[in-house]
């Protein structure tokens, strides 16, 4: 496992977020970035090795359990936030008739 390779996933997500022309594509890129950040947290907790953080006979070294406890909630919350963003996309399509950033920004600016 290499944290640098994991950070590359975050950067790819950020690149997609800033260049995508479609709103739904942006939501996809947010999902990628989020997965990269979660993986990075777990990666840093696992840096010095260890076993699964569940008590058993003869346990001497565990991975850091704190990032894992935070990341579980992040995954569940992240899915609901994605759902909220997609519901807004549906409403934007009904209002403007398009989900391209160019069209929505141009028409939104006129008002």
């Amino acid at each position: 496992m290499n944290p640098l390779l994991t950070f590359l996933v975050v950067l790819i997500g950020l690149y997609g977020l800033s260049t995508s022309k479609n709103i739904i594509k942006s939501v996809f890129c947010v999902t990628i970035t989020e997965a990269g950040v979660i993986l990075l947290f777990l990666n840093l907790g696992n840096l010095e090795g260890g076993s699964i953080p569940i008590f058993a006979e003869g346990l001497v070294n565990i991975v850091d359990p704190l990032p894992q406890a935070l990341m579980i909630t992040t995954i569940v919350i992240g899915s609901t936030v994605t759902a909220l963003a997609l519901m807004l996309c549906i409403k934007i399509f009904h209002h403007y008739g398009s989900v391209e950033w160019d069209v929505v920004l141009r028409d939104g600016g006129e008002e």
């Binding site: 979660i38 777990l42 696992n46 076993s51 699964i52 991975v63 894992q68 990341m71 579980i72």
Partner: peptide, 12 residues
Amino acid sequence: YVINNAPDVAIA
């Protein structure tokens, strides 16, 4: 996640 010793996160 499983390779990183985090089965809880993998289930979620």
